[in-house]
Design a protein around this nucleic acid. Sequence first.
DNA 1: CGGCTGACGTAAC
DNA 2: TGTTACGCCAGCC
Length: 107
Amino acid sequence: MQQQNDFFERVYEVVRQIPYGKVTTYGTIAKYLGAAKSARTVGYAMNAAHANPDVPAHRVVNRIGMLTGKHHFFGINTMQQLLEEEGHLIVKDQIQNFDVVFWNPNT
DNA sequence: CGGCTGACGTAAC
DNA sequence: TGTTACGCCAGCC
């Protein structure tokens, strides 16, 4: 994994590796990239990720598994719907069994 | 160039 | 235990 010059590119590469039926968090990605305190920037990167179809932004949520970024999709239901399609259970914008479906980029 | 904002996270009160 | 404040980085005004 060669580090891209662009911070966003690095984020996209990690997100792209998220397997089907799994999810991860902004902070986890940030830490993996070595910018533990830049979780916010990771989220911002996701904002621009909509231009990258290979980046499943819907598989990235905050540390508690809440779909905080759903409003940034086409429809506020798109994110939840996509996750449910992958077998996730969403209740009140929160992923149930989050610890089970959680995916660590380091593995 | 300076300041504000934001898909977060952690520490402090 | 719940709320508030701050840091971090990039983009926009």
